[in-house]
């Protein structure tokens, strides 16, 4: 199995994308920058409706492959100290209840960050008053701090130097909201880790979860900057097979949605087939059909995969090889099981 996986990977990397193979370190960097441009969810095709669909949500959750010990693992918490564990004697009923509570908590930790289209720029002008030119040499920013308004609905206006009174643009709005109503963990300016070489460095070190968690805190989901960081990270994960880094985290669903939305699930599908997670592969194909509004002619599970590979896949050779390997393995296993049964006198 391992040998077959190795071969299919080789086919994948050598024959299918020879132009993207790095020849030296410097070359790799320039190719990387060219490869990963920001992919935003634009307004024309709003992903929100499909993302919040119950069936899609449950598919995404299933594909996350939740491992509770990974969800509740120790984390990098910075200065926060871990508390000592508390051991308790419990009756069976209490234990059941406690387990249920733990599962509930993990569900909260695993809530997928919303996928929405990128926001529109704000440019509403309330008044123009050229007679105010010369009054101030700097802009005046007025923030409404009335109690109980949502940050997104808060009125923030700017009196420009030329006397125009207009609504603040998003960048300024976010800055004022964070200034007057600070959110924990969010900084006033986006940190440098989301830009240029710093982001590259983090991605090279495969700190995917760190980048995505921090982006979730720093930005709103409709922020172009958020969608840039997240989409670049997803593309990096997809190209470097880093799916295991995100399994059992809240980001795996969003990653899968991104890949299926942009018709780019071949790498993930190959990984699922290679690791014999055929049920998940079929769920992935279901998700693909839901998002892309395509139907498979055949209802049988394995036939579905074959149909996908022949019709929609961009990387047919590698996928066919991987699928063949899976089928051989399944056949061998079945033979072995039958053999064992016969040996035990059951067959």
């Amino acid at each position: 199995m391992a040998a077959l996986r190795h071969i299919s990977r080789k086919v994948f990397t050598t024959f299918l994308k020879p132009e993207t193979r790095p020849k030296s370190e410097t070359c790799a960097i320039c190719i990387r920058l060219l490869n990963y441009s920001s992919i935003e969810y634009d307004e024309k095709h709003d992903p929100a409706q499909k993302f919040f669909n119950k069936e899609v949500q449950s598919l995404l959750k299933d594909l996350t492959r939740v491992d509770l010990s990974k969800v509740n693992r120790k984390r990098k918490l910075g200065a926060r100290r871990l508390e000592n564990p508390e051991y308790k004697f419990m009756t069976d009923e209490e234990l059941k209840q406690a387990t249920e509570e733990a599962i509930q908590k993990s569900e909260e930790l695993l809530q997928i960050p919303p996928v929405v289209s990128v926001r529109k720029p704000l440019n509403h002008v309330f008044a123009r008053d050229p007679a105010l030119q010369g009054l101030e040499e700097s802009k005046m920013v007025f923030t409404d701090i009335t109690f109980g308004i949502k940050d997104a609905e808060r009125l923030i206006v700017v009196r420009e130097i030329d006397g125009t009174l207009r609504e603040a643009e998003w960048e300024l709005k976010n800055r004022m909201n964070q200034l007057y109503f600070p959110k924990k963990g969010r900084s006033l300016k986006p940190p440098k880790m989301f830009y240029g070489e710093y982001l590259d460095n983090l991605l090279e070190r495969k700190e995917y979860e760190f980048v995505l968690d921090r982006a979730c805190i720093q930005f709103e989901p409709n922020d172009p900057d958020y969608q840039r960081v997240v989409s670049i990270t997803y593309q990096h994960i997809n190209d470097h097979d880093g799916f295991d880094y995100l399994r059992s985290t809240r980001h795996f669903g969003a990653l899968t949605f991104f890949l299926a939305w942009h018709k780019n699930i071949d790498n993930l599908l190959l990984e699922l087939i290679e690791t014999s997670h055929i049920e998940e592969a079929i769920k992935l194909l279901d998700l693909f059909s839901k998002l892309q509004a395509v139907n498979y002619e055949k209802a049988e599970d394995l036939d579905k995969i074959e149909e996908y590979i022949s019709k929609f896949s961009n990387k047919k050779a590698a996928l066919e090889l991987g699928f063949q390997a899976y089928k051989d393995l399944a056949r061998q296993r079945k033979e072995l099981e039958d053999g064992i049964k016969v040996a035990h006198g059951l067959g």
């Binding site: 101030e136 040499e137 700097s138 802009k139 005046m140 920013v141 007025f142 923030t143 409404d144 701090i145 009335t146 109690f147 009125l155 700017v158 300024l172 004022m176 200034l179 007057y180």
Partner: peptide, 14 residues
């Protein structure tokens, strides 16, 4: 003015 040349004012209009 701050580093972006803005003078900041907050007002509780309610």
């Amino acid at each position: 003015p701050n580093e972006y040349n803005e003078k900041l004012t907050s007002l509780n209009f309610e």
